[in-house]
Amino acid sequence: MINRPLRSGFTLLESMAAFAISAIALVALIAIVTQSVGGQATSTRQYADASFARAILEEYIVTYPRLPRKGMYKQVWQWTIIERPAERLRVSQFDSDFDLVEVAVRVTRVELPTSAFTLKRVVARRSSVD
């Protein structure tokens, strides 16, 4: 029998297998991080849209009828306000004094016109009939 000297280290095949496994794991990790960052950006954008819609709706309700029903803010957001009579769930003695109106604001980003955020609120207004 021939005695061969023992060599320490890894064979080429073992090294290539370890490299392939590391590359697959790295690609999976990059995909997860990319998806997470994209999801965070979407959530941040939706939060900003909702906050802007809330601000426009509050301003419209408080300053009614001075705020225009359509507008644009800093070339970023466009809004449209729609009013319609609200459904009455109960009848009370004050129904003749107030009208219930559903106010909806639809906010759209200028760079993303297909994604819109709509916020609705029911408000009571004094009846115009006295």
Rank of each mutant, 00 (worst) to 15 (best):
P65D: 11
D97Q: 14
S8I: 12
D97M: 12
L12I: 15
L67A: 08
A116V: 15
Q93W: 02
R88V: 08
L119A: 03
R4W: 02
G38L: 13
A55H: 04
R126F: 13
E83V: 13
E87W: 02
I81D: 02
I2D: 06
V76E: 12
G9E: 03
S115I: 11
I56Y: 02
Q46V: 09
L13H: 08
V110A: 04
T63L: 14
I82L: 11
E58P: 02
P68N: 11
I32A: 15
S127C: 07
I61F: 03
R84H: 12
A17Q: 05
L26D: 00
F52K: 04
S22I: 06
A124H: 01
S8V: 12
E14F: 03
V122A: 05
A55S: 15
G71W: 03
T80Y: 00
D49A: 15
K74E: 15
A86P: 01
A25L: 13
S96F: 10
L67R: 14
A53P: 05
I56D: 05
D99L: 13
I21N: 00
F52P: 04
Q35V: 07
Y60F: 09
T44P: 00
R106E: 15
Y47Q: 12
V27F: 15
R4N: 11
V62Y: 04
R121F: 02
I24F: 08
A116F: 01
Y73H: 14
S36P: 02
V110C: 00
K74I: 07
E111R: 14
A86V: 02
K70L: 10
L119R: 02
L13D: 07
S115Q: 14
L100I: 02
V105E: 01
Y60T: 10
I2E: 06
I21K: 01
P85K: 11
F94M: 10
L112D: 12
R84P: 05
S43W: 01
G71V: 07
S127K: 08
A41M: 11
G39N: 09
V91M: 08
Q46E: 10
Q75M: 08
A116H: 07
R54N: 14
I82P: 00
L12R: 04
P68W: 01
A104D: 07
Q75V: 06
P5K: 14
V76G: 00
M1E: 10
A104Q: 13
V62K: 10
T63E: 11
T44K: 06
Q46G: 00
A41W: 00
V123K: 01
T11Q: 07
P85L: 13
F10I: 11
